[in-house]
Nucleic acid binder design. Structure first.
Lengths: 351, 351
DNA sequence: AGAAGTTGAGCAAACGTTTAACCAAAAGGA
DNA sequence: TCCTTTTGGTTAAACGTTTGCTCAACTTCT
């Protein structure tokens, strides 16, 4: 089947205040005032009715560009995400939208791929005033982006990530999340607990590693660096390879805490390849929840993070800046807790 | 840790053409012309240099609202998706962005939740001229949306879905996809092939069912309505329940074709609960690929659809309409083919 | 009745950009 | 020398809104 678009099927020309004013036999400003809905405007009942009727019959809608030009505001936020496919992203998106909407702002999502970065699209659009502020929801972050943003002195917020050049960020308490995971494993009797760490150049990975060590410490378990494997971010393949390395060590672990969702999935693959039964032979805890965690085999026990809340706060902060309102906001969110599914069980070493 | 936003940290005021003109001691229009990059403009080398220098040192960026107001165009497209978490969405998004960018347009994604529908946000934003055209990437579609859009006479394109009230849609050949899946199963020796069908009020589900029947016919296999189960869309739970019903029939199937990705995942869960080994005891084919298909156990054999291409075309069509260019575009894309993984195998009934 | 206040609406300017129309000065042609 | 053309700009208008100011026509008060 083929779609033919004929030439010259002109699109309708939107009606303007002028059209409404002409139709109602009044001046433009009074139309603007009446349609603004402001109860302060003094206008006769008759005029008001005529204007309302004309606006409706012409299906008038105020032009956003003209409004923004006048107001020097678009009341629009942009949310840049590097990877739309990442399972943690959707909840952040919904959070940002919720936060924006409740303050009368719109939020749009844009995919920050390599090309967008090299063209500095995020910056240009901000500078052109296409939107008032920017939220960067990203784990894979090129530092140059943040520096450009700081230099531009335009409002932006980092989500789920910190950067030395700015204090405009909102994150979850990754260390606390790691501690919850490790505590759970320790309580199940595990002692040799491995950690699949994300690239340590990222602050999130570092904090998770920190939490891992802290909690081991708290339980009097010695830290064994051979039980920590760094793996490449965001791809399950990386987690798989790293998990294999862990299993091939001389004293393999009985449980593992994976630094993120895709890593956990990769690790699961490796464990199965080694013929290990989860959770009977080996326990696995992931970080960040996702609907997918329920359907994989076995369903994954994870530490859930308040991603929605984080998105909402990011929008709130940004809007406070835009409206030049002072505000004091907790910048680090505590984990929501453990979601127990079927990938963890008491350590065999107990029996 | 707490973030304090101090009051009165004024944001920088963007510079305008006027500022540049003053700084370079020229009039505004010549600045506009020089910065437009149009080689036709006749200007002395000296003036050009002064303007360029001033623009750079003031870090001038043209104001998007003013431009759009003048041009009556925003060169922006909006892509509304009902469910950001749906695994097929990311590729469509990337396709739309690619198509938009190559034509000089920007594309933004917005999440079309219930509230957005009830507030008709998609319509309002279009009517306000926040963007020039609209792409609806949705399977869960409320008809009223399309009707509103048609009535508004503003440009929009439906992606992955058809609707009687418009011919502005671009889809994949679902029937052909179903045929590929069934043919694969038949070639593996399966005869009792079930179908998990999406809600039959959706055209996509209907076409997949159609393809299923056609291909059975082509192989001389009688259609057995007890082998078809309708299940609720987009949730793996639905697929699970439906699959269980199929397995509890008197003459259970040896293979199943699931109408979409989440359905296939749900079916997998049900099959495992019944103690069936995949693919030894039972074969499963899904529709639509996703990175997740590789990591679940077993990796899912699916029929892959050209989702990226579909997104790209949607953007192309929309832009052709906007620029009042006639065009002839294939409206139905053929499947990319079967992605063979580990969820299908020769029928046991053969041995 | 005259002054003062209120009501209802119009006029004009501004937001930043683009573009058509215009014009002085320099250059070229007879 | 005078007329025409080219060069290198300028002036003015327009896109659709919003908002401060103005102002005529009533109303109310003294």
């Amino acid at each position: 089947m083929v779609l033919e678009i004929p030439m010259g099927k002109r699109l309708p020309i939107p009606s303007t205040l002028k059209d409404v004013a002409n139709s109602a036999n009044v001046s433009i400003p009074i139309v603007s005032r009446v349609l603004s809905g402001n109860p302060e405007v003094r206008v006769s009942a008759d005029t008001r009715q005529r204007i309302l009727k004309a606006a409706k019959s012409l299906s008038y809608h105020p032009n956003a560009s003209a409004r923004s030009l006048k107001a020097k505001r678009t009341y629009t936020l942009a949310l840049f995400v590097p990877d739309v496919g990442n399972p943690v992203i959707p909840e952040i998106i919904r959070g940002v939208e919720a936060g924006a909407q409740s303050a009368g702002y719109a939020a749009f999502v844009s995919h920050l791929d390599e090309k967008a970065v090299s063209e500095q699209r995020y910056l240009t659009w901000l500078q052109e005033g296409r939107f008032d502020g920017l939220i960067l929801a990203t784990a894979r972050l090129e530092d140059s982006i943040v520096e450009d943003l700081v230099r531009s002195r335009r409002p932006f917020v980092l989500v789920n990530r910190r950067e030395s050049s700015t204090n405009m960020h909102i994150t979850v308490d990754d260390a606390a999340g790691a501690r919850i995971a490790i505590n759970h494993l320790v309580e199940l009797g595990h002692r040799r607990i491995a950690h699949l760490a994300g690239p340590l150049m990222f602050d999130t990975s570092l904090r998770r590693l920190q939490g891992y060590r802290q909690e081991l410490d708290a339980h009097g378990i010695a830290y064994d660096s051979s039980l920590v494997q760094e793996y490449s971010w965001q791809t399950w393949e990386g987690g798989k390879v790293a998990m294999k390395r862990l299993l091939q060590g001389k004293k393999p672990p009985t449980a593992v805490f994976a630094s993120n969702f895709m890593g956990a999935v990769g690790a699961l693959g490796a464990l199965k390849e080694f013929g290990l039964k989860i959770p009977e032979d080996f326990s696995l805890v992931g970080l960040h929840d996702s609907p997918i965690a329920e359907v994989i085999d076995p369903p994954l026990t994870v530490v859930k993070m308040p991603l929605h809340e984080m998105g909402r706060r990011a929008a709130e902060i940004l809007i406070n800046i835009l409206e030049d309102r002072p505000c004091v906001i907790p910048q680090v969110l505590t984990p929501e807790g453990l979601v127990m599914r079927k990938s963890t069980a008491p350590c065999r070493c107990l029996s």
